[in-house]
């Protein structure tokens, strides 16, 4: 393991993504990606009394699924990295409290999934852990309640707003076995271009994604064409468009390789999700459900996965602060 360039870590014995799992909510189950997920729920409450309990159950069951799919006994998993959007990450810590695996709570807003994979892969490569579990979740209803308005309020969502994905994605990393490798990680810097509109998260996070992707290319000496696909977390339609154009203005053409999980998750015309999906679970479920399988089947051999996050809360929005964005990238190859 060594640092290359300004902020990229290159692995000598790359950690392996052994298994992934994903569970999504009802709206996601009606979207174009539905067939790739392990489980599609029909009820946002999933038999629980509160949105928060439902979200905890979703992450708990996703983790149980990934453990049983991998065949690795949970007592052999050394560490768990997990996080979500609710205050003090209660979905993860409440959902995983019965797991009996040493736990690191991670907060990177919607970038949490890749952030945990960055940390987990360093633990694996350093020899500190044999198996690491990474998980994240989000829930439309608990997120609306915490960040916006009660669900029953008769307000209109502006066309720039994004729809928080209900679901959870989890992965297990190890150093022996089969599967795609994490060859490089490029943790991102906090980038704030002064966007204050909490209904336009894609625009707030796109500059962070731009910064991290360009830094990744500079540090590794790679060109966009090295990759079969570059996938960002949840920039949505507007953010995707912005990132494409800004990459172009900096001399990188990624248009043909690039897509965004927020764009992939929903059918914009049929599902009325405005600018697309967002939330920790957006990239978490789509990577776990779709891209992991594509990598396994070798239809994609080199993937740059860039998770973006908006590091704000409802207090900072009310105080009129701008929204700092962050993006973490991992290079996954097979």
């Amino acid at each position: 393991m060594k640092k290359v360039g300004k902020q990229t870590i290159s692995f000598d014995a790359p950690p392996i993504i052994l298994e992934t799992a994903s569970i999504v909510g009802p709206k996601e189950s009606e979207g174009p990606m539905a067939k790739y997920f392990d489980q599609c729920l029909t009820d946002e409450f999933w038999g629980e009394k509160t949105w928060e309990k439902a979200e905890s159950k979703i992450i708990k069951e996703t983790v149980n699924t990934v453990i049983s799919k991998s065949g690795i006994p949970s007592k052999d998993i050394d560490f768990c990295f997990a996080g979500d959007l609710l205050n003090q990450c209660i979905s993860s810590s409440f959902g995983l409290r019965a797991l009996n695996i040493p736990f690191f709570g991670v907060f990177g807003a919607c970038s949490t999934f890749v952030e945990s994979m960055c940390l987990g892969s360093v633990f694996i490569e350093s020899g500190a852990a044999k198996y690491v579990l990474c998980a994240t979740s989000s829930h439309f209803c608990s997120a609306e309640k915490q960040f916006r308005f009660p669900l029953e309020l008769g307000n209109q969502r502006p066309p720039t707003s994004q729809w928080t994905v209900t679901g959870s994605g989890a992965s297990i990393l190890g150093h022996v076995g089969e599967g795609p490798y994490i060859t490089h990680i490029t943790p991102g810097k906090i980038v704030d271009m002064g966007i204050k509109d909490a209904n336009n998260m894609g625009a707030a996070m796109a500059p962070a994604a731009l910064d991290t992707i360009i830094q990744h290319f500079e540090d590794t000496g790679r060109k966009p064409s090295y990759y079969d696909a570059i996938i960002s977390g949840d920039l949505g339609h507007i953010g995707k468009d912005i990132l494409n154009e800004m990459m172009q203005s900096k001399g990188y053409n990624i248009k043909s390789l690039y897509n965004d999980c927020g764009v992939l998750m929903f059918d914009k015309n049929k599902q009325d999700t405005h600018s697309g999906g967002s939330g920790c679970a957006c990239i978490g479920t789509i990577f776990s459900g779709y891209f992991f399988k594509e990598l396994k089947e070798k239809r994609i051999r080199r993937l740059l996965l860039v998770a973006t996050g908006a590091l704000m809360n409802s207090t900072s929005t009310q105080q009129g602060e701008s929204i700092p964005g962050i993006a973490h990238a991992i290079s996954i190859e097979i």
């Binding site: 009802p26 709206k27 949105w51 009660p150 669900l151 029953e152 009325d272």
Partner: peptide, 9 residues
């Protein structure tokens, strides 16, 4: 009497 419910769109 009421229970919170998701907006369908």
């Amino acid at each position: 009497i009421a229970k919170p419910k998701i907006k369908k769109q």
